[in-house]
Nucleic acid binder design. Sequence first.
DNA 1: GTTTACAGACCAACTGTTCTGTTTTTATGA
DNA 2: TCATAAAAACAGAACAGTTGGTCTGTAAAC
Lengths: 193, 193
Amino acid sequence: MQVKICNATVTCLDQLGYAETTFAEVQAKAGISRGAITHHFPTKQALVAATAMRLLGNAQNPLWPHDRAPQPVYDLIMSAWANIVNSAGGRAIVEILVACRTDPALFGMLEQSLRDWDKSNLSLISARYVSATGNRDDTELLWSIARNFLRGLLLHEKFVSSPEYLMQMMDRFARMMESQLQVLPKNDVEEVE
Amino acid sequence: MQVKICNATVTCLDQLGYAETTFAEVQAKAGISRGAITHHFPTKQALVAATAMRLLGNAQNPLWPHDRAPQPVYDLIMSAWANIVNSAGGRAIVEILVACRTDPALFGMLEQSLRDWDKSNLSLISARYVSATGNRDDTELLWSIARNFLRGLLLHEKFVSSPEYLMQMMDRFARMMESQLQVLPKNDVEEVE
DNA sequence: GTTTACAGACCAACTGTTCTGTTTTTATGA
DNA sequence: TCATAAAAACAGAACAGTTGGTCTGTAAAC
């Protein structure tokens, strides 16, 4: 049930935005009663926060499975855009991030979790890629930059002159990152908790 | 009067977000009557769209005056962050961009203007900087990337582990851009309409 | 005198939350 | 195993507060 509610919330956030994501709308989209939602999530912030946590859990990189070699930098960036950031879940996350900026209650619920996710996500990726400088902090900086660029691109998407131009931006950015990062050779991988 | 109303709207967008930017709130912040707002801007979308246009007009680069030499790439990126993107107006613009994604009425009012602004802004900057490849399209791509990164950074700002880390990201990104772009020598500048 | 600029009341629609019921599951004890 | 009590899961009505938009009234400008 909670899964069903959160999924409907993601759809609402994506299609309607944070403000228009109302209990009534989620209820209709999920095909359940009002009481079911308020029982599990007493406030709107609790509903959205729970949805965010679920999204982050799912997005904890389905992109590089443990048992296969890491993707090339270029491919990873491209598929991160297509499969994560520019997906219903990715767009929902951006709605939530924006809402956090001006909704103190929501921010309080998510601040620590988002910080932790950020750290663990960077740890995970830094274990498989390395900056041309060999510096681990630099690797994390570069991937942080990539994530922020992709999120920013989401805001620009509807105003881009053509879909091809957006792809050119992606390509140019990915090539630039490619020149700064490389896949770690397998024997150099040190497992991170 | 319209200026006063729009300024109050910017403050509201920045501090409260798009959803909480209500007529009542703008009215209170501007210290005027309800009728004054609805007279000039019959709908909320009209109010926000007018505010956006005004913001874009103001942001049409106060950063590189016509009578002085262009700033170095690094400096331009740094001051664009501090003075444009991460300002009340910049944050308001991001709120509006996000709202446009799910508010068709607002999107319709701003789509063309934002596209035009984008184009003219890139034209202006491409007249003063050039990609290492010498390709003008590449120059525009790079500056588009920069703008989207800065906007994305705005969403991340409240979740960054420390202000210093954010500055490290800025520094790293600016250095990366610096390696791809250079200021055009003065005699090469071709004026663009 | 006609249009524009402002003032402020008014209203229907909607929102988040609370609440009272009803059903289902779970825990308990003999 | 099974009765039964307690708790959790759901359903849906009710409500106070707010919102965007409209409407009438007044003053000023052209």
